[in-house]
Simulated assay, not measured.
Amino acid sequence: MKPESLAALVALATEPWGLDEQELHARLSLAGVEDPGSALRALSGAGLVRQERRRWTPTPSGHEALRHAESLLAASQDPSPSSSDMEECPSVPWLTQVQTHWVEAVSLNYAVDPERLARILPAPLVPELHRGTAWVQVLMSSLRDMRPQGVSALLGVCFYQVSYRAAVRYRNARGEWRRGGYFVRSETNDPVMRRVGNTLDEFRFHEFGEAQMVMAREGDLLTLAVDPEARFAGGRLVAVFDTRPRSEPPVGSVWTGLEDLHEPLVECYDALGVSGDFVYVLTIDRAPWNARFCTPVELYCEYFEDGPLAPGARLDSVLHLTECAYRWRPLRRERHAP
Rank of each mutant, 00 (worst) to 15 (best):
A13P: 02
L24M: 08
L24G: 00
L24W: 00
A26W: 07
R27G: 07
E34M: 14
G37C: 10
A42V: 11
L48C: 02
L48P: 05
T57F: 04
T57S: 06
G62L: 04
H63V: 13
E64F: 11
R67Q: 03
H68D: 12
A69V: 01
E70Y: 14
L72A: 02
L73I: 14
L73V: 05
A74Q: 08
A74R: 03
A75G: 06
A75V: 14
S80W: 10
P81G: 02
S82Y: 15
S83I: 13
S83Q: 14
S84A: 15
E87M: 04
E87R: 12
P90Q: 00
V92A: 01
W94R: 12
W94E: 07
L95S: 15
L95H: 15
Q99E: 15
Q99K: 15
Q99A: 14
E104R: 12
S107R: 05
S107C: 03
L108E: 07
E115P: 01
R116T: 01
L117G: 02
I120D: 03
I120A: 03
P122R: 02
P124N: 01
P124T: 06
G132D: 00
A134Q: 05
L139E: 13
M140Q: 12
S141R: 04
S142D: 14
D145K: 06
M146Y: 01
Q149T: 11
Q149V: 01
C158N: 11
Q161V: 11
Q161C: 03
V168G: 06
R169M: 03
N172G: 07
A173S: 12
R179S: 12
R185Y: 08
M193H: 10
D201V: 13
D201H: 10
E202H: 08
F203L: 07
F203N: 03
R204T: 05
G209N: 04
M213W: 05
M215A: 08
A216T: 05
G219R: 08
D220V: 02
F232A: 11
L237V: 11
T243Q: 05
T243F: 09
R244F: 02
P245I: 02
S247M: 10
E248M: 00
P250W: 01
V251D: 04
L258I: 05
D260L: 09
L261D: 15
L261A: 11
H262C: 15
E263Q: 11
P264E: 05
L265V: 09
E267T: 01
D270S: 13
G276T: 06
D277A: 13
F278V: 02
F278W: 00
V279C: 06
V279W: 10
T283P: 02
R286P: 11
R286T: 04
A287Q: 14
W289R: 09
W289V: 14
A291D: 13
F293H: 10
F293P: 13
P296W: 13
E298Y: 02
C301Q: 11
Y303D: 04
F304D: 05
E305Q: 08
E305N: 09
D306Y: 15
P308N: 03
L309P: 06
D316C: 03
T322L: 08
A325K: 09
R329W: 09
P338N: 06
